[in-house]
Design a protein around this nucleic acid. Structure first.
Lengths: 117, 117
DNA sequence: TTGCATTACCTCAACCCTTGAGGTATACAC
DNA sequence: GTGTATACCTCAAGGGTTGAGGTAATGCAA
């Protein structure tokens, strides 16, 4: 009825977090899903249905490299950042900072900003 | 071909900003569109096609009240926060803080890799 | 007075991301 | 042997934003 459910604010965030986590060490998809939960103290949790497509697209765009590692008879696909991916992380990271700081300035501003209009 | 365009990070943000701006003083839709641009120093800009539906839904949900004011022969629809809307602002605001702090903690978690080329 | 920009309201399809459910297959414990 | 965990994958549905479009009144310039 209300449309507009609780706002999640996480649009685009999974990709940023994945870039950041992979900048530390290579990881595989299933690992990333729980790593995101752990790294954010359970604040952010994304499903596999979100993570895998991001990995595939990023690899297609040469932001990530991938290698298969055999483990207990099963294959894991380890992803790592390419140089291009590292650049993307910097860009996306600054973009996030610009946006979030802008939002915080509006939230924290108790009377200015509008007065200057 | 790449799907996934540049991440905007603004999903849900318009609603938060509108709540915050209306908590300072009543405003009309067209005014909010430029107020968001000004308040964020041109970092965030949302279209009317985004703002108006949000206002309508929020009013339907009793988060906003509305009154028509005649100005130069044209009618303006001024929106203001209800008590319920003020509560929603607090909730949404804390939610934003939780999320953004979680993201920043992951981004800032040191291991190098961020600032350096 | 015709034309254009601005104000001010509105709607809608297309786009894109995430959710959540579903599917496959192996390994290990009970 | 049945369940749980690992590990990969896909897809429809849901929902928010974009960008284009529409209406109408005002005011200003050519």
């Amino acid at each position: 009825m209300s449309s507009r459910r609780d706002l999640s604010f996480i649009n685009g965030v999974p990709e940023l977090l994945i870039l950041r986590l992979l900048s530390r060490r290579e990881m595989y998809g299933y690992e990333l899903v729980s790593a995101i939960r752990v790294a954010t103290g359970d604040v952010i949790s994304v499903g596999e249905g979100c993570v895998y497509p991001i990995l595939h697209t990023m690899e297609k765009n040469r932001l990530l490299g991938c290698r298969r590692v055999q483990k207990d008879g099963r294959g894991r696909l380890y992803y790592r950042l390419t140089e291009k991916g590292r650049k993307r992380l910097n860009q996306t990271s600054s973009h996030w900072q610009r946006i979030s700081q802008a939002i915080n300035s509006v939230l924290g501003d108790n009377d200015a900003a509008i007065a200057r209009t």
